[in-house]
Write a protein that binds this DNA or RNA. Structure first.
Lengths: 141, 141
DNA sequence: CGGTATCCACTGGGATACTG
DNA sequence: CAGTATCCCAGTGGATACCG
């Protein structure tokens, strides 16, 4: 954990020494692509295997068709998923992870695991804060 | 890699079996908090050690004071960073990772490493796509 | 089934100016 | 130094309707 901090610190220092344009930082690039509300979620849904359009829509009930379609297209142009059309009637379109997409799964699993394990801690922190603010308000601050 | 896919698939299946409200999925919760443009970036800046307000502002030249202040406050209420004020004149405010914040660094390091290693692949995929679209346009599609 | 098209509301976030 | 306050705009994304 402390080691990870040191390593990240080293990377940051390295970027700065290289005079790296902030806009071209790999981390920011990644975030711009998959840091939205749906990308990571759809990628995790596809981890277990290929899925069709409406299956994805059912798996993520609160995504609109519009965003589903749009997000899938972005993931496709980024080379993270494949889109396969079987020209039957009605059409059958299947989405699946590319090797590049699959290579993202191990780091993603780390993040998911952290999220599960620390969900409670974060919520506790928020409630402590909310309580403090409420107390401050009550005293007339 | 395939193992990570299987594990993620299992987690997803588990969530669905538990009838988990999508809005309370830990992954979505995490993304809602640190999936914005600045949070992860600021956390990585703090990985190497505590930093003061204006030091952070210089380290991330294209963040406005408004967003810097706002993002730091959110990270604080989520229990990921600490804010320490020394009541001198002028004031000296230092931000640092909490233990919870530090615990996020290992999974984050995994993601950063992936981003660095696969930056080129993603850009190549995008350009292939752009080329295809251009070719299709040229033919009058 | 697998999408587009259109419209619209909300909000993330920049610019600027001010404060203790 | 370390912020807050105010204003404002562009883009994200939801709702709805339609299409091949």
């Amino acid at each position: 954990m402390d080691q990870a901090c040191t390593l990240i610190g080293a990377k940051v220092a390295e970027w700065r020494e290289m005079g790296l344009d902030p806009a071209r930082c790999p981390v920011r690039d990644l975030l711009d692509r998959i840091g939205d509300r749906w990308s990571i979620l759809l990628l995790t849904m596809l981890a277990a295997g290929p899925m069709r359009f409406n299956a994805l829509a059912r798996a993520v009930p609160d995504i609109s068709k519009r965003m589903l379609s749009q997000t899938l297209r972005t993931l496709e142009t980024d080379g993270l998923i494949d889109r396969t059309v079987e020209p039957t009637v009605p059409p059958r379109v299947t989405y699946s992870l590319t090797p590049l997409g699959k290579s993202l799964m191990p780091p993603l699993l780390g993040l998911i695991t952290w999220a599960e394990q620390n969900h409670a801690s974060v919520q506790a922190a928020r409630q402590r804060m909310a309580a403090m603010v409420a107390a401050a308000d009550a005293v007339g601050w």
